[in-house]
Amino acid sequence: MSHQITPAGRRSGLCAAALLITTTLLLSGCGASATGEAKAAETKDGKAAEEAKVEAVPVEVAQASRRAVAASYTGTATLEPRAESQVVAKTSGVALAVLVEEGQQVTAGQPLVRLDPDRARLAVAQSEAQMRKLENNYQRAQKLVGQQMVSASDVDQLRFDLEHARAQYRLATLELSYTTVVAPISGVIASRSIKTGNFVQINTPIFRIVDNSRLEATLNVPERELATLRAGQPVTLVADALPGKSFTGKVDRTAPVVDSGSGTFRVVSSFGDAAIGLQPGMFGRIRIDYDQRTDALVVPRLALLDDGEPAVFRVREGKVARVPVKLGYAEGPWVEIREGLQPGDQVVTAGKVALRDGTAVQVIADPKAKTVAQAAAPAAKAGSTQ
């Protein structure tokens, strides 16, 4: 049985097809619009995240922790020997022998130089002969005075002359001893200004001896430290000439009075046999420890703000807060916090200039942040692949 399509049926079919096409186009337009809005929203969120990321200030932090910290006074001084002597010639003469050299260790009374003794020996012999003559005359006069052959006044005069001759003899003997120059103190020969064959004038310096068995360093300390520094306290010295080494000593003595002109008092530290390598004249940095706390809460000095009262920036939940603190002792790179922080608190040590109270921060080299970043990287890579 055959079916014939009438003109009216043909028109109905065309209308239905046109209606289907229009509906499809409308649906496609709505889907495209929704997709565009979603993409715009994602772009906006990404920009907001980037802006938030840019606003976070990168900083370095350190944790407040407990450790031993000492209260100390520091200063600089030049090392000086405990004793020093300029050796001078007490008589004139030609140096026949120089017995020591620079750098040689000597003891008190050790011969250093022998001068020509001939003139001094002749003077001793002459004074001795005069003394012997007067001794004989005095002895004869004592025998004759009993026989009333010599007056008592003559005997007294002879006795006075004999005492004078004996003094002259002792003086000549002393001058003879001066021809051998000896060390007045024990120490090391620091300098020598004489050679064999030189003529030496009386009172001419010829050697310099320093006693380096104990070195001393003198600090001029402000009077406010008068109650804290006292004899016996431990001292640490670092010399510029010996990098990497430190030497220990003690406070030997303190001046009992304060200089009214400078407002300081003298504190003398001594360094004994343990200070091997130190030499007189070296420049040293000295630290005197006068108290110590074994369990103090400390932070790096770099964490302190320099804009007024002592304070630090504490980091919590990605933001900083300005926290006033009460300081205690300071030692090296550490400073004690008496009030304001707790153990484990994070404080900003680098990047403080750009911070204000409440600023968002990103901690550099924070292990937790690094772990989160490493975990987020694969997820972001997988999302971009899809």
Rank of each mutant, 00 (worst) to 15 (best):
residue 3 H to N: 09
residue 6 T to L: 11
residue 7 P to H: 12
residue 7 P to Q: 14
residue 7 P to V: 10
residue 9 G to P: 02
residue 10 R to W: 15
residue 19 L to G: 02
residue 25 L to K: 13
residue 27 L to S: 13
residue 39 K to T: 06
residue 44 K to Q: 13
residue 48 A to N: 13
residue 51 E to V: 00
residue 51 E to N: 08
residue 68 A to P: 01
residue 68 A to C: 04
residue 70 A to V: 12
residue 72 S to I: 10
residue 73 Y to C: 05
residue 75 G to A: 05
residue 78 T to L: 05
residue 79 L to Q: 01
residue 80 E to G: 00
residue 83 A to M: 04
residue 84 E to P: 01
residue 91 T to F: 13
residue 92 S to L: 13
residue 93 G to L: 14
residue 98 V to S: 01
residue 104 Q to T: 00
residue 108 A to E: 02
residue 109 G to I: 14
residue 110 Q to R: 09
residue 111 P to R: 07
residue 111 P to G: 02
residue 117 P to Y: 14
residue 120 A to N: 01
residue 120 A to P: 00
residue 121 R to N: 02
residue 121 R to H: 02
residue 124 V to T: 05
residue 124 V to K: 03
residue 126 Q to C: 06
residue 133 K to I: 00
residue 138 Y to D: 10
residue 139 Q to D: 09
residue 141 A to W: 00
residue 150 V to R: 04
residue 153 S to A: 14
residue 162 L to Q: 02
residue 163 E to W: 08
residue 165 A to T: 00
residue 165 A to G: 02
residue 177 S to I: 05
residue 180 T to S: 14
residue 181 V to M: 14
residue 181 V to K: 12
residue 183 A to Y: 10
residue 187 G to K: 07
residue 193 S to R: 01
residue 195 K to V: 06
residue 200 V to W: 03
residue 201 Q to V: 06
residue 201 Q to I: 07
residue 204 T to M: 10
residue 205 P to W: 09
residue 212 N to H: 05
residue 224 R to D: 06
residue 225 E to C: 08
residue 225 E to A: 11
residue 234 P to F: 09
residue 235 V to T: 05
residue 237 L to H: 00
residue 238 V to G: 06
residue 239 A to V: 07
residue 244 G to W: 05
residue 247 F to C: 07
residue 254 T to Q: 08
residue 258 V to N: 10
residue 260 S to W: 06
residue 269 S to R: 14
residue 270 S to A: 12
residue 276 I to Q: 15
residue 277 G to Y: 11
residue 279 Q to S: 08
residue 282 M to D: 11
residue 282 M to L: 10
residue 295 D to Y: 06
residue 296 A to I: 04
residue 297 L to Y: 00
residue 298 V to F: 15
residue 302 L to W: 15
residue 304 L to G: 07
residue 324 P to M: 13
residue 325 V to K: 10
residue 326 K to A: 11
residue 326 K to M: 06
residue 327 L to F: 03
residue 328 G to T: 02
residue 334 W to K: 11
residue 335 V to I: 08
residue 337 I to E: 15
residue 344 G to M: 06
residue 352 K to W: 13
residue 358 G to T: 03
residue 359 T to I: 14
residue 365 A to F: 03
residue 370 K to Q: 14
residue 372 V to K: 14
